[in-house]
């Protein structure tokens, strides 16, 4: 082996060690078993209310008053009818549990236990066949105030209008009174502080 080869091998070995070290101290923000070693992750597993991190607080989103108002009700519109559900009415319907992650495009993800009403049941209550839904949040502005969800997500039995997170009522920062949780969507589309759901046809 020549000196050049030896030096190249040593350099590559060094790069290998550096890669291992960097991976070890960051991967834990999305791979749960590595969480204790995630020294240089912006997010800590379990940090945040109800064990799940927050990106936008209720205060930042400007929804404190609307989300805590006693007059709040979720509006579901479709097929010419407008349905309205208070939080108690939603809690009174059949509840479904889903274990789903919040997966943020910033690079962290946390899996949590959610409970609420299947979105599909609320959509079906309008009697209109759907081609997806349009979801509107209470927040007065923001890029994701209004989003659309394709029929494949609406039909998924784990997609919920969630009312509980990890065994407790949703906290304000997690989207109280009700939020969307669906599998396989980026975190920004898991709309918090629901105001209205329009059934698309």
């Amino acid at each position: 082996m020549t000196d050049d080869q030896r030096s190249r091998r040593r350099f590559l070995t060094g790069v290998g060690f550096a890669t291992l070290a960097v991976t070890a101290v960051t991967a834990g923000q999305t791979i749960a078993p590595l969480a204790p070693f995630a020294a240089f992750a912006p997010r800590r597993a379990g940090a945040g209310p109800q064990g799940v991190p927050i990106n936008r607080t209720a205060e930042e989103a400007g929804v404190l008053d609307l989300a805590t108002a006693s007059t709040w009700a979720l509006i579901v519109r479709g097929g010419g009818s407008t349905l309205s559900f208070t939080r108690d009415q939603l809690l009174g319907r059949g509840q479904t549990a889903s274990r789903l992650p919040i997966a943020c495009v910033e690079g962290w993800s946390t899996t949590a236990d959610w409970r609420g009403v299947r979105l599909l049941e609320l959509v079906a209550a309008t009697g209109q066949p759907h081609r997806g839904v349009r979801i509107t949040s209470l927040q007065p502005d923001g890029n994701y105030r209004v989003t659309e969800m394709g029929p494949e997500f609406v039909d998924d039995p784990t997609t919920l209008v969630a009312l509980e997170l990890n065994g407790e009522a949703l906290s304000l920062d997690h989207g109280y009174p009700a939020r969307i949780i669906a599998p396989g969507r980026p975190g920004v589309l898991q709309t918090k502080w629901l105001a209205r759901i329009d059934v698309l046809s």
Partner: peptide, 23 residues
């Protein structure tokens, strides 16, 4: 980022200087 102030309590929750020294 921590010195500039975190967005909320669940962001930048670590003690990064201490961890760097330990590492």
């Amino acid at each position: 980022a921590q010195a500039r102030g975190a967005r909320n309590d669940s962001v930048l929750a670590g003690d990064y200087v201490r961890d760097l020294v330990l590492l």
